[in-house]
Structure formats: structure tokens, C-alpha cells
Nucleic acid binder design. Structure first.
Lengths: 148, 148
DNA sequence: GTCGGTGCAAATGCTTTGCATTGAT
DNA sequence: ATCAATGCAAAGCATTTGCACCGAC
């Protein structure tokens, strides 16, 4: 399952099914609120902030409270479906990662826009650097700051 | 000035002088409290958290209030002497960067230790990625998470 | 005496939590 | 009935800010 090709792999199974299965496996429920949160995230391009998500959901048919949004985000993190992307000083953003390569980012310093990119050779580099020091690489994060 | 050799350049001038000059240039003062904060940071190995810095300073001869620590950190950031390193979910850490190459880091998830590394080929990669999109790369940051 | 700097305590803003209620099986 | 999920409001934290006081030039 997953994690094979380059920029983005074929997702053979809808994300909501992945999430539902995950929840079921730990005795939790796939509720309308949780579905609503996941849907809103899937509709998102690139990074999102929790506040934007909450706004988005405010106008959705199934109202979802702020507390539930935060709780669902934690579940999605634990499930490996989304990933937190820390920003300096600013509030954390999140992005979908399930079935995708972990994103590297180009962040435009003029517009603030974050452009996901994939740098395949980075994994070899990082593994080598860690191996040289007797460590095992777990993940990495590359932020490139640029302007137009 | 500075910014030349690889892992770390010779610093011809003490950091406190750099800071003092910077402050003077904007009509601000190099106070004992600010000196104390900078000293504590210099004594630090690698990354530090604000809370640890405050603790450290609590036992120093010149007491420094929490507010002043935060205010001084902002000044040091603006001066390019330290850099904020965001961590997922956790509170931000900081590190000295003045007179050093922008660090790439291996961060040990087991011990919290931050190991500066330099990945020369990264600059070519980042320039290429930006050029492909009509952008100009300014800087980058690579954090590799690993454990022993 | 004018300015900036400091410490304190209060305020802020994001996130989490306690608790009573609700809903599904 | 049981067990988890929800919404709300309150609590928690790290950080920032307002303000009165202090010290250097």
C-alpha cells in the first residue's frame, strides 16, 4: 500500500476509507463530523491552517465545533494521513501526505505562497549523512525561500 | 561581512561587539541584561529553548526578566545573530547562526541533540528548482530527523 | 529632562480539556 | 444500557504588551 512512485502515486482507495478503517481498528467511529473535516482537508490545495479549516467548516452542512476539528486533526496525524508543517513564529500548517511523498517546500518570501516540490535525491543524501554518523534517518524537511 | 568558509568561519570580532554595533546603529542600547542574554546563548551548545534560557538566567548575577529575554531574542533575530528553528508541535528552538553558514541540521529525535551538517549539493538543487519556476532562491533550511 | 529599557502583571492567541449531553449499536 | 463523540466554556501555555518606574546621557 502506497509509497512507491514519484510525485504522487495512484491512490487506489479513497482517503475516507483509509481513515474509516483506521478508526475502526482502534474502536473509534467514523462520524459525520470527522468525515466533514477530512473532506474539507481534501478540498484544500497544499497547506492549510486550522483556523481556515474551521472557517471553511462553519459554512458546511454539518457544523463542526472547533474542539472536534482539533481532535480530528490529531487523529489524522496519528493515522499518518496529514502532517504538521511548522513555520517560524507563525502557527503550524498541515498538509495531506497519505499516499504522497513527504513534501519539500518552496516558500515565496514575497507572497507567502508555499509550493510543494519533491526532491527525490534528497532521501539518498539524508540517508548517507545519517549513516555516516551511525544514525537512522526518519524524515526530513526542506524549506527553500525564494522570490519571483 | 563574514559568510565565507565552510562549516564555520573565523569570527574576527566577538559577537557581543556585533550586537552592540547593531543596537547602536538603531539608537538602542547594549544593556547588561542584553549582554547577559547573549552570553547565555553563546554558552549554549546547538539549539536552545526560551524556557531553558530563562532558567539559566535566573541563576545569573544580572537577573533578567522573562519579558526582556523575549524582547532580546527578537532583537537578536532581527540582527541575524540567531535563527528560529520551528519544531512540530513543540515550542520553537533557536540557535546561533551569525558568522556561520546557514546550517543544515540533523536533529536526533531520541536525544534532542542538533548536529549541524553542510550539504553543498543542496545549493545547486535548490537553485535548479527555483529556476524551473522562474524564482530566485534566497536561502534554504534542511532539517533531518534521525535517531541512533 | 528626554528616551529608551526593565519588570511585573495582565492580555493575547492557539490549542487542549472537563463535563454534561447526545447518538449509535 | 453502554461507550464513545460532540459542543461549549473554561483552562493551559508560550509569547506579547501596557504601564509605571529607573537610569544614562
Amino acid at each position: 500500500m502506497a509509497e512507491t512512485e514519484l510525485p504522487r502515486i495512484e491512490i487506489v482507495e479513497p482517503l475516507c476509507a483509509v481513515f474509516r478503517r483506521r478508526l475502526k481498528s482502534e474502536g473509534a467511529k467514523y462520524t459525520p463530523e470527522r468525515a466533514q473535516v477530512l473532506d474539507a482537508i481534501i478540498r484544500t490545495e497544499g497547506l492549510f491552517e486550522v483556523e481556515a479549516l474551521i472557517d471553511e467548516l462553519r459554512h458546511s452542512r454539518q457544523r463542526v465545533s472547533k474542539a472536534t476539528v482539533y481532535r480530528t486533526i490529531r487523529l489524522l496525524l496519528d493515522a499518518g494521513i496529514i502532517q504538521r508543517v511548522p513555520f517560524e513564529g507563525e502557527t503550524d500548517r498541515y498538509q495531506l501526505v497519505y499516499g504522497r511523498r513527504p513534501h519539500d517546500l518552496i516558500i515565496r518570501t514575497d507572497t507567502g505562497e508555499a509550493i510543494p516540490v519533491t526532491v527525490p535525491e534528497l532521501e539518498a543524501i539524508r540517508d548517507r549523512l545519517c549513516a555516516e554518523r551511525g544514525l537512522r534517518a526518519q524524515s526530513h524537511r526542506l524549506h527553500i525561500f525564494a522570490s519571483g
